[in-house]
Design a protein around this nucleic acid. Structure first.
Lengths: 168, 168
DNA sequence: TTTTATTTTCAATAATATTTGAAAGTTTAG
DNA sequence: CTAAACTTTCAAATATTATTGAAAATAAAA
């Protein structure tokens, strides 16, 4: 396969995966484009490569910065802003885990904690069932939370080494 | 907090989490409702509890069955169908992991494998950058795939016991 | 200061996804 | 068989989300 075709496929695939995970397609595509670009790109270049409007490109680039996945750069003597992705995939994975933990897992844990204070009669089937589900999900979510904390601190080789060693 | 209020909050929270993960809100809410129901419910009951239409309830219940999260039940002498959720949260987690692996991770791995066959000159920066990203993502995705395979086979206590032991 | 290059905003529009509800389909009981 | 109970389908309506593009804001250069 030719490089040009490969690029297209990569951008498309990354966009599809993104939207299956609640990340908007354009955002994932811009990220993909920057991941495979050796040099930082301008807003204009992103617009042209992906055929999107200026407004869209601007907002999407800002979102990617907020997710900690890309950064603004400036070239000496130039006025335009350039954008470059963090190319370390392990950093990308950690950054995404970190953001989703903050945006989703933590609020969920807060709700679950609150819900585990619901009082009731243990002989009431409705209460017992509610309580069991809430408690069990709470435990699972806390385990996931701990695992993510470790992942955030870990080096890639160490993390997968340790995890996969057990799983042989 | 009262049980009734707790139920509402749980259904709402589960629905929100679901939609952040690309699962439609109603589907997550119906799942939540069944998770905390001691008894199997009919389509009619689901419609009433969540204020949704018959068509919506029917399609959503079917989707949940396809995800392996709930099952149809029949009561002797009754004509109606009843629906009950698998209450084992570890099963739920595994089932979701299994489906997403099949629907998303595996197709992604296929594309990445294809993309790693793109030929080019190692001194070409564009090719080198493309190749590095594709290769690195491929490795990460394969590790994730192995981890999910293990999770699918594992008992909950064993899985978290092993994982969290390392992560102290 | 004025001009020009560049970025940001946001109301309007377009695209996508979800939901409804009524009709058609199916199954069981009489 | 026919009627009643129940389930499924799907085109149309709604709701949600993403995108555009042009005007406003900002910042550097002249």
């Amino acid at each position: 396969m030719e490089l040009a075709e490969g690029k297209q496929k990569f951008i498309e695939a990354w966009g599809r995966i993104g939207s299956e995970w609640g990340i908007n397609r354009t955002m994932a595509q811009v990220h993909a484009l920057l991941l495979i670009s050796p040099d930082a790109l301008t807003t204009e270049e992103v617009m042209d490569e992906l055929n999107i409007s200026r407004g869209n490109a601007n907002m999407t680039l800002r979102d990617l910065i907020n997710w900690g996945l890309i950064e603004k750069q400036h070239k000496p003597g130039e006025r335009k802003e350039y954008f470059a992705a963090d190319k370390d995939i392990w950093n990308v994975a950690r950054q995404v885990a970190k953001e989703r933990k903050k945006r989703e897992l933590e609020p969920m844990l807060k709700v679950l904690k609150e819900l585990s204070t619901v009082e009731g009669d243990k002989n009431d089937k409705a209460y017992a069932t509610f309580n069991k589900s809430v408690t069990d999900i709470n435990k699972l979510a806390n385990n996931a939370d701990s695992m993510i904390d470790t992942m955030l601190k870990a080096e890639e080789s160490w993390f997968w080494g340790s995890v996969l060693k057990i799983f042989k």
